[in-house]
Amino acid sequence: MRLSRREQIVDHLVLGLFALFAVVPLIGVLLSAVTPAKENEGSFAVPRRLALGNFGSAWDQGHFSTYMVASLVVTASVIVLTTMLGVLAGFAFARLSFAGSGLLFFVLLGGLLLPAEAFIIPLYFNLRGVGLTDTFLSLILPQTAQSLAFAVFWLRNQFRTFPSDIVEAARLDGARDLRVLWQVMVPASRAPIVTMCVLIGMWTWNEFLIPLVMISSDDRRTAPLGLTFFQGQHLNAYSLIAAGGVIVALPIVVAYFCLQKRFISGMLDGIADR
């Protein structure tokens, strides 16, 4: 369906307006991060000179090296665990026939509807009962469980669209289910899997409630939680707070820009049939 010239103009205006609402606050944070501390009053203003030293000061005073390492450990672990389990479960629901698969799949999808606020208190007492609070496992296991429902849903749909003739050809050559999965379907599904990993990585990196409840030690705080404590200690240091925010957001931004082609390909094209 071709859009008329008027419809195209309206679409671009609407998209431009939404983009403006999204970009302007980010520009404000970046400008605040490079504004000298004595000149920063918390307003949207272009600095007279750049103070890049704010990033070094925020890094040192906010102990962001410790927080970033903790976030990297948790995020990487969640991505790896969720991807491994999601690939196996997605293949099982998409290509294998077993009793109760339909019911089990819809029960699993219930995880997409359950917010963390609904289970965080019983989860805390359960993990405290087995001695896992204030550990990385208390962050990795719940967030893996949270992300797994989406991973299974995403990969099940992707594997169901995989060309059946390729699968049948592999099985005629003697390949069993696991070989078909890891040597045939997964390599052709790199773009959708990368898209899933980027989304899960973003959600895990930005998670705040679970670390807030589960972690009490400073060396196990994640970057968003550490930024909150840093903000509480520097309420009026707008330049340092903005610099800390940029530091925390930078890894996800860099990861997205490095993987954006595969991310977009996974969102739009799905499984490659080559």
Rank of each mutant, 00 (worst) to 15 (best):
F230M: 08
P163H: 07
T161G: 13
G129T: 00
A145V: 13
P211I: 11
Q146I: 14
L227G: 07
P224E: 04
L212G: 00
I210A: 08
S217V: 12
M214Y: 11
L225G: 06
F153V: 05
T135D: 03
R190L: 14
F136Y: 15
L199V: 15
T204Q: 05
Q183K: 15
S164L: 15
G226H: 01
E207T: 09
Q146A: 13
G226I: 02
S147R: 01
F153T: 08
A149Y: 05
G201M: 05
C197Y: 01
I215K: 01
P163I: 03
V198A: 04
T195K: 08
I215C: 01
D134I: 08
V152D: 03
F159D: 10
R190Y: 06
L212C: 03
W205A: 11
Q158K: 13
C197L: 03
V180C: 14
L127N: 02
S138A: 15
A170G: 08
A175N: 00
R221H: 05
G232Q: 13
T222V: 15
W182G: 04
I193P: 01
R160Y: 00
V198S: 04
F229Q: 08
T195G: 08
V198W: 02
A237T: 09
A237N: 14
W154N: 00
T228W: 10
R190P: 00
L155H: 06
E207L: 09
A223E: 04
D165R: 07
G174R: 03
L181T: 05
L148I: 10
D165C: 02
P142V: 09
L137T: 10
L181E: 05
V186Q: 12
F159T: 10
I210N: 07
D177R: 06
R176C: 04
S138Q: 05
V194I: 15
P142E: 06
T161C: 09
N236R: 14
V167I: 14
R156K: 14
P224M: 06
L127S: 00
F229E: 12
T135F: 07
C197K: 01
L155A: 02
R220C: 10
V130Y: 08
A223W: 04
P192A: 02
M185A: 04
F208E: 11
L127C: 00
I193F: 10
S147W: 02
M196L: 15
Q231S: 11
F162W: 13
L141W: 11
N157L: 04
F162P: 04
V186G: 10
